[in-house]
């Protein structure tokens, strides 16, 4: 899709806080453009995060999540050097995956 996700993962004790900023319009399907036509809904529906290849979190989003969505969660047992990857699928079937290393 557009820009890569920005993922920051910081280890603190026995868990890592992962912050992700995704790049996506997240249209609700409620807005109208200048000519009065409704702009169709276009938003991320599913998000999943994996730690060292194992899925640790899945989420389903509706159109009311903000544009360029932000997400923060804590993974237990993650240490510096581990890989965290985040993927999303939107309602048009587009998908994106990005990866980061825990610092």
């Amino acid at each position: 899709m557009a820009d890569p996700m920005r993922i920051r993962a910081q280890a603190a004790g026995d868990k890592a806080t992962v912050r992700v900023l995704m790049s996506h319009e997240m249209e609700t399907g409620q807005r109208k453009d200048a000519s009065g036509k409704v702009i169709p809904a276009w938003f991320i529906q599913e998000v999943s995060a994996a730690h060292n290849g194992k899925v640790v979190m899945t989420a389903q989003w509706g159109p009311s999540v903000s544009k360029n969505p932000f997400l923060q969660f804590n993974v237990k047992g993650a240490k510096a050097g581990d890989k965290v990857s985040v993927s999303w699928v939107d309602n048009k079937g587009d998908k994106r995956t990005d990866e980061a290393t825990v610092s």
Partner: peptide, 13 residues
């Protein structure tokens, strides 16, 4: 899941 804390933050409209 057991691997994440039950604590999530996001931004909504």
């Amino acid at each position: 899941t057991d691997a994440v804390e039950a604590n999530f933050n996001t931004r909504v409209k």
